[in-house]
Design a protein around this nucleic acid. Sequence first.
DNA 1: ACACACTTTGAAACCGGTTTCAATCGATTA
DNA 2: TAATCGATTGAAACCGGTTTCAAAGTGTGT
Lengths: 334, 334
Amino acid sequence: MNTVTIQDIAKAANVSKSTVSRVLNGTATVAEDKKKAVLEATKRLGFQPNIVARSLAKGRSMTIGVLTQLIGSPFYDTVAQGVIIGLRDTGYSPIFVDGQWQKNSEVEAIQALLGRRVDGLVLIGGGVAENEITQLCGSTPAVIVARKLNSESHRTIHMDNVDGGYRATRHMIEKGHQRIAIIKGLGHHPDAIDRFEGYRKAHQEAGLDIDPGLVLEGDFSADSGVAGVDKLLAEKTLFTAVFAANDMTAFGARLALYRKGIRVPGEVSLIGFDDQMEATYSTPPLTTVRQPAREMGQQAAHAVAALIDGEEFESQCVHGELVLRESVAPPPAD
Amino acid sequence: MNTVTIQDIAKAANVSKSTVSRVLNGTATVAEDKKKAVLEATKRLGFQPNIVARSLAKGRSMTIGVLTQLIGSPFYDTVAQGVIIGLRDTGYSPIFVDGQWQKNSEVEAIQALLGRRVDGLVLIGGGVAENEITQLCGSTPAVIVARKLNSESHRTIHMDNVDGGYRATRHMIEKGHQRIAIIKGLGHHPDAIDRFEGYRKAHQEAGLDIDPGLVLEGDFSADSGVAGVDKLLAEKTLFTAVFAANDMTAFGARLALYRKGIRVPGEVSLIGFDDQMEATYSTPPLTTVRQPAREMGQQAAHAVAALIDGEEFESQCVHGELVLRESVAPPPAD
DNA sequence: ACACACTTTGAAACCGGTTTCAATCGATTA
DNA sequence: TAATCGATTGAAACCGGTTTCAAAGTGTGT
């Protein structure tokens, strides 16, 4: 192992540990010749400072703890990627713990992170109670991404899902649709609830009643998209459009429609949510509400870094952007 | 901050630091009453051991460095996820560094990881020279995933891409296709080269010549799939099937075909590579060669853990499995 | 030439744990 | 009763850096 320490450098350069440290960190002025000697020895011996030791001494680990939700959701994964990217030039490295860590889950995961003395925390989604977060984190700066909190007690970066659902639905209504089915996301998931609320709001605003038969349960999976459409068809519910809780669900719905030979958007229009990469290339390309997942992750990364440096950071509420592609058209003349 | 140290516990329980450490780690037998006192104090004061300090003292950081390639490839991302999952119950936490880290890239990234005194390394893909890896890692156990190495000097978990390309191509040949276009991956990428080699091999075995006009350059992106098919069509090259270097490229090809009103698999068959989640739900569901990305990541995680514990681990060469769905059919009778 | 301020430097303390080492103790054995 | 042994325990060294502090060296003003 490359186990050359600062002590070895000191000996080689004929100075003290302290001086080596000062040269390497630029903490104080050091005579030119000694500085040169230290630098030379550092290079020659291939010295690599032990970050663990440095962390202990400085009380800062240059590490950001990231709590992820590996539910296989492309959205959350992309947020996590954004965090990695956003941390690139900050000097901090992300350390990941999965929310579904063993049975103990999130709280334990956060504790594990804290035990590692991370300098900051990025919590992606998740469901720990807010006050519990407060209590756990103590004075460690934390940013919560992709999750709406009720109180203002934490900084968050999240999307306005009500608005997103509203825009998606209104778009279809404007195209002339009156019977828009919705395949909802996971029942208790706040995002799912909000998107549905947006759907409701758009109907209300347009003076349209919602036929309960058009409201299907789902769980953000493609399978639930298939199931939703199949149910609609089996029950012979009339519908000219489908609002899927996310793109995966939309893909599932698309497939179910394809199997029955129902044309999209000719006979049924389809809209998704997320704008994951594949949406651009589905057939037809999927109209959807874009969630800037990567950007949110990046922003969160910058935010913790800023917080650690004592700067302030305001919670952000991003608005989804409707990405018009080809899966929505006016309903068939009939 | 929750800055209660082992010293505080010692004082509270009226014993020495050493004893507290012994109780907490079970390193030695401790009198029942003292043990109880320590445990009680630990709980009461809410003690959380400082892992940084422990790491320094023990010389082990309980951290695994993971080098990722955030090129937005679903495949690599899934491997990374697999690593997180595989590390769940091992006590190790993964710390991530992106290969495209600053301009300096991979070598610097690995050094950063090593500076953090990671106990092991998982390198996902990447292109650092093999001997450089050897030299860098020294005695730190390392596993390379999703990359073929020429020498046996490192443990790797990778897929036989020649075989994968061969199987895909042979499948189409067996279905009766004679003019199979291929949209290749990134020119210099070993996986791309190997898959093409498999394509070649299958043709050779079947006594089929390869029309150079059927071989298109690509870069693993969906766009290159679109471009490939467009080129084929523009040049009026005859073809009844397309082998795309990966699923994303296949999706792009699918879209280009869709735009021209060419039916899949009625008029043209299509096969991909990877079996990413969306392949199941594309229209039609995509026949593809499955790369067990998540499993490979998990295996790699287990492998480093094993190596650290002194166990041995043999390099693994996984074989891709042909996943038959609906995008391949016999060529049209014509 | 002398006092005073400022710069450079090394010794030592410290961060919070683990581990070695030697001392103490009760119990067993001769 | 003395000697030996094993089990407990605390003091101190250690991991590899950073930082404080005081001493030594330099230069300036009078």
